[in-house]
């Protein structure tokens, strides 16, 4: 009995300035012990900087051909080499970031808002609505992501925006399922029952209690979805369904090097490595956000 009271007091003390020194080390700990996570955050920040201020990272133009340096290998002047028109691959990758990441952002937003809304309604209303919505989710899940995206693209037409919408729609099911499970869990909590018993309106319970308390899992899903959306958008760009050719979209950059892979592998490999590092970084962040599911 005494023991439990003592530990309870300790937990209270931990937040006051007189906390033991071990606790202070614990605050520093994540940065020192998780260099991978820090690196991941830096990669994402760099990618965002590429979008916002590309001119700071390169002074060249991504579209102007340079006949003096055609298919030049990586060097100090052209860190990623040049393509068959003499355009600098590094500059094109930097300027392409905004195209790929804007599309990714659009895709993730569509998936997040539609998916969360569907999951919320299904989990809260239950009954027939739940049954119908979940069968819709089943149908979406029965066709794997890339194929579903291609089907939607063939109905909507080509272009970066259409690809982003298609990727977004094909990931709606992931958010809907997680949100529904979370809502089902929260609606059984005591405070929801208490709110209902004092006569709170159902809509008010939904908005004030259920929604805020079930958001954390879906929000943690965003970085994971961000990574897979980049992969999907780049894959469609690679197949030629995304941005039209002169644009430096990441997947398209990799595709442009396909024909000259034997003589100029850098055209495909460097933009590919950039895609890989951004996806790795966002997946690393997503693992940090859900420690119970991580390895």
């Amino acid at each position: 009995m005494r023991l439990t009271t003592a530990s309870g007091l300790d937990a209270l003390d931990a937040t006051t300035p007189s906390a033991p020194p071990r606790r202070r080390f614990g605050v520093l700990h994540p940065v020192v012990a998780q260099p991978g996570l820090v690196l991941a955050v830096l990669v994402i920040l760099l990618a965002v900087a590429f979008c916002v201020i590309p001119g700071v990272f390169t002074w060249k133009d991504p579209y102007v051909p340079d006949t003096s340096a055609i298919l030049a290998g990586p060097s100090a002047a052209q860190p990623f080499g040049t393509d068959r028109l003499g355009r600098d691959i590094y500059t094109r990758t930097v300027y392409g970031t905004v195209i790929t990441l804007t599309a990714t952002l659009l895709a993730v937003s569509i998936a997040f808002f539609i998916g969360t809304a569907l999951g919320l309604v299904a989990g809260f209303v239950r009954g027939v609505v739940d049954l119908v919505l979940m069968r819709v989710v089943d149908v979406l899940l029965s066709v794997p992501g890339l194929l579903l995206t291609m089907v939607i693209v063939s109905a909507l037409g080509y272009g970066t925006t259409n690809v982003a919408v298609a990727v977004g729609i094909s990931s709606v099911a992931n958010f809907a399922r997680v949100m529904r499970a979370e809502v089902l869990k929260v609606t059984q909590a005591d405070f929801v029952e208490a709110a209902a018993s004092i006569g709170t309106h159902r809509l008010a319970i939904l908005l004030r209690h259920v929604l805020p308390n079930s958001m954390s899992s879906v929000v943690a899903l965003i970085p994971l979805q961000f990574g897979s959306s980049i992969l999907a958008i780049a894959a469609l760009g690679f197949l030629g369904f995304g941005a039209p050719p002169p644009q430096p979209e990441w997947g398209l950059l990799v595709a442009e090097g396909r024909d000259v892979l034997a003589v100029a592998p850098w055209i495909s490999l460097f933009p590919g490595a950039v895609i890989l590092s951004v996806v790795l970084a966002s997946n690393r962040i997503s693992r940090a956000l859900q420690p119970e599911r991580g390895l």
Binding site: L231, G257, G272, V279, N283
Partner: peptide, 15 residues
């Protein structure tokens, strides 16, 4: 495994 999941499949094919 996390590396495999993050690897763009088209890049892997080209490599």
């Amino acid at each position: 495994p996390p590396l495999l999941v993050s690897f763009p499949s088209f890049l892997l094919g080209l490599i």
